[in-house]
Nucleic acid binder design. Structure first.
Length: 288
DNA sequence: CTAGGATCCTGTCAGC
DNA sequence: TGCTGACAGGATCCTA
């Protein structure tokens, strides 16, 4: 579930707590969730490639972590920091039923929870991170992609729905279901438009919107809970404060007040304003 | 090569 | 209450 802004929020949050701590032991309770031989070693850095986190150790090995749909990382030490898939388990006892891997550190514990077991932690050599099959094929993030490059990518996949195109991490990296919907709404583009039908202006607008919605989310701590859990832990509030369409079906469009609807595109739940985001055959009728 | 659908897995919720 | 199917903030594999 976590998309680029959530993973970046996790990275920044965890960094403060785990850098320079030694991993003393790793317990794996779900074989599928941990690939490789659990290492011990001191944590030197925590990096991010798209939606993947990399924890570098001082022994030439790294842990690659992908949370996929339902992963969570929770650090429990003098303070607790939790982020990832939103759930009540953040504040529940740890470990719990969904805890797949426990990393014991000198001064605390890092829990990897994952309801659906799609996520994983994988041991790779630090030198081989960039040549890992998943990392290697990731495209540029919206901030480092030029409008020209983006337009060319859309043309290359001209027969595919634009939403499917921007969800493909090998085409543009970082967007998931929330930010794809938000970016398309911001750019007033219907998700079922063929990628090749977007004008250069629309393409540039979409790229710009993708940057904006994700940056805004990073600035506000992600859309999911990212919290120092005390009794009243604060949480990332992108969905509450900034999301315009995601999970807002049946509510009025913030731009035109027409009722937002939910449809299915590329196999994913998709939220749109049927007035602001019109199909090609309906566009240019009457107004702009 | 592209595009679309099934699939991995567990849990929750709406509808009967 | 219990059952059933749909669905879920991701990515891969298989098919045509």
């Amino acid at each position: 579930m976590p998309e680029l802004p959530e993973v970046e929020t996790i990275r920044r949050g965890l960094k403060k707590f785990i850098i320079n701590q030694k991993i003393t032991r790793i317990d794996v309770s779900c074989e599928k969730s941990f690939i490789g031989v659990p290492p011990v070693g001191k944590i030197k850095d925590i990096r991010r490639y798209g939606k993947a986190l990399i924890i570098d150790l001082d022994n030439d090995s790294s842990l690659m972590i992908h949370l996929r749909m339902t992963g969570q990382l929770i650090y429990d030490g003098a303070e607790r920091y939790a982020a990832g898939h939103p759930s009540d388990n953040f504040t529940a006892n740890l470990p719990n039923k969904q805890t797949r891997v426990v990393l014991h550190l000198e001064n605390g514990t890092l829990y990897f929870n994952d309801q659906r077991k799609f996520g994983f932690i994988k041991v790779i050599k630090t030198k081989a991170v960039e040549s890992d099959p998943f990392i290697k094929k990731l495209a540029k993030e919206p901030w480092s992609m030029t409008p020209q490059e983006f337009y060319e990518k859309l043309q290359k996949h001209k027969n595919s729905c634009v939403k499917a195109t921007i969800l493909d991490q090998t085409i543009i990296c970082g967007l998931g279901n929330i930010y794809a919907d938000e970016a398309l709404f911001a750019a007033k583009i219907h998700p079922e438009r063929k990628s090749g039908s977007l004008s250069r202006e629309e393409s540039t607008s979409l790229l710009k919107s993708a940057r904006e919605v994700m940056q805004k989310s990073i600035d506000s701590g992600g859309s999911t809970m990212a919290t120092y859990v005390k009794a009243d832990g604060t949480k990332g509030d992108y969905l509450e404060k900034f999301a315009q369409v995601f999970h807002r079906e049946n509510q009025p469009c913030p731009r035109c007040s027409m009722k937002l609807i939910k449809i299915k595109v590329a196999g994913r739940g998709t939220h749109i304003c049927p007035n602001c985001q019109q199909q090609p055959c309906l566009r240019s009728i009457g107004h702009d």
